[in-house]
């Protein structure tokens, strides 16, 4: 049975809400020549867009605050992130 674009979008939303990551580290990652070139270029690029900078800053502040409060926080505070 075909999946409609709307159904696909719903499935995607459901996956986003899963909030799970799993890294399959059963095999070693060996970079290809192209990946090395691309990675070198990305790591030399020091540009950070404003939205990313703001996320980075908020991460830093969030952890600092968590530490100050002896690592206690309410679920309601986290929901406001």
């Amino acid at each position: 049975m075909m999946t409609t674009p709307k159904e696909k979008e719903i499935q995607k939303e459901e996956r986003i809400s899963q909030e799970n990551f799993f890294f399959d580290d059963s095999e070693e990652i060996i970079l290809t020549e192209q990946e090395i070139q691309d990675l070198e270029k990305k790591l030399e690029d020091r540009e950070i867009d404003d939205k990313t900078r703001s996320f980075f800053n908020s991460s830093h502040q969030f952890y600092k605050k968590l530490k100050e409060k002896d690592y206690t926080i309410s679920l309601e505070e986290i929901e406001k992130l």
Binding site: S17, E19, F21, F23, D25, F56, S58, E79
Partner: peptide, 26 residues
């Protein structure tokens, strides 16, 4: 390696995943 992240089904959509990504960075 950010090997695993899991949020219990009863606590999904409460931004715990984002909070953990922020902590992973720090």
């Amino acid at each position: 390696l950010f090997g695993r992240l899991g949020v219990d089904n009863n606590y999904k959509n409460k931004k715990l995943g984002i909070a953990l990504i922020k902590i992973a960075l720090e």
